[in-house]
């Protein structure tokens, strides 16, 4: 009975929207980050043909979009890049904050500093940046950057660093007691020395390094919440720590390009993914938290109540939304990071 009711609703839904929004939608997103079920549901609901293209870094995506006439309708950059997109006039002001499903946005993501009033962007998934540790190798405190920046003997030579300059510079600056985007040279000298010293204990500086945690080649890594959750489901002694010195959180966001060929469909998509059951499809696929109230109900079982997907109350004050620093400071940081990587 229930089944027929839903299918009837679906058919009804189809017939009313078919005429409205036939056509295409071109999505430009990170690789392995879009639930095929979500896309399937979206194209069936609105009779829209969806094409997906992957990018591997925010910088690549921005460079491509900036060239103009990329043919993409929606892009999913990290929030630290959204102000740049807005300032350069790359986005269409679709006002998702006023859309029907915007009421589902979690408080933290309703009116963020990177897009006040949600004039352009809708959260895709959100994450924290911390450390994953194999607790059968190291039994001490894992809520600290010390694990990767001044590691105990057990972890030496078994540490991976994800080569995201901003994440690792943030960690080192916080560990030395500084503030993000600082240009204090005395502190940055300490940061550089700390990183150079710590590098001796690092096994690799590699995006895929966290994948080697399950097999035991890597025992600690700079990591993101959803990635840490995946590791734990593969190997139960892996735990995720949020460093008490300060950590970052952030989100990737769906924005619509100014030159989008299918503007209306893109708006439909923005609204569509703010529905809890749809956002949950994405979460279940990528294992990151949805920034949507009520999505948790629809999570897969391994995600319900997962510690990686929340920030404990006593840690809330330690979290910062990651921002891009001034170009001069970024240049300073990248010089330090290059010295470490060489």
């Amino acid at each position: 009975m229930k089944l027929t009711a839903t299918s009837a609703a679906l058919i009804l839904g189809l017939s009313t929207t078919v005429a409205l929004a036939e056509g295409n939608l071109n999505i430009y997103n990170w690789g392995e980050y879009t639930s095929p079920e979500l896309i399937d549901k979206f194209s069936k609901t609105y009779n829209i043909h969806v094409t997906q293209t992957d990018f591997d870094s925010n910088d690549t995506a921005l460079a491509k979009v900036r060239q103009g006439s990329s043919g993409f309708d929606v892009v999913v950059p990290s929030q630290s890049f959204i102000p740049t997109y807005i300032q350069e006039g790359l986005l269409a002001e679709t006002n998702p904050g006023q859309m029907e499903n915007a009421k589902n946005l979690e408080e933290r993501w309703r009116d963020p500093a990177f897009d006040p009033g949600r004039k352009y962007s809708v959260p895709w998934l959100w994450y924290t940046s911390g450390v994953s540790v194999n607790t059968s190798v190291f039994k001490g405190d894992i809520n600290t950057w010390k694990v990767i920046l001044d590691p105990p003997a057990e972890l030496k030579g078994k540490i991976n660093i994800v080569p995201e300059m901003n994440d690792i510079m943030f960690a080192a600056i916080k560990f030395e007691g500084g503030t993000w985007c600082t240009s204090d040279k005395a502190l940055l000298t300490k940061v550089r020395d700390r990183l150079l010293e710590a590098k001796k204990s690092w096994l690799s500086i590699d995006y895929s390094g966290t994948l080697k945690m399950a097999s035991g080649d890597v025992s600690a890594s700079l990591d993101w919440s959803g990635s840490a959750l995946k590791r734990r489901t593969q190997n139960h002694s892996i735990a995720y720590g949020l460093p008490k010195e300060g950590f970052t959180y952030g989100s990737d966001n769906v924005v619509v390009l100014k030159d989008a060929p299918n503007l209306e469909n893109a708006k439909l998509f923005q609204n569509f993914i703010m529905a809890p059951e749809n956002a949950a499809l994405n979460s279940t696929f990528a294992k990151y938290g949805a920034a949507i109230i009520g999505a948790e109900k629809y999570y897969s079982d391994d995600m319900k109540g997962a510690p990686e997907l929340t920030i404990p109350d006593d840690m809330k004050s330690k979290g910062e939304l990651l921002t891009l620093c001034d170009p001069k400071i970024t240049q300073l940081y990248s010089r330090i990071w290059q010295d470490v990587q060489k």
Partner: peptide
């Protein structure tokens, strides 16, 4: 890799 970094994260 060093050259790639300049066009990516290094923004130079």
């Amino acid at each position: 890799n060093y050259i790639e970094f300049q066009f990516g994260q290094g923004r130079d």
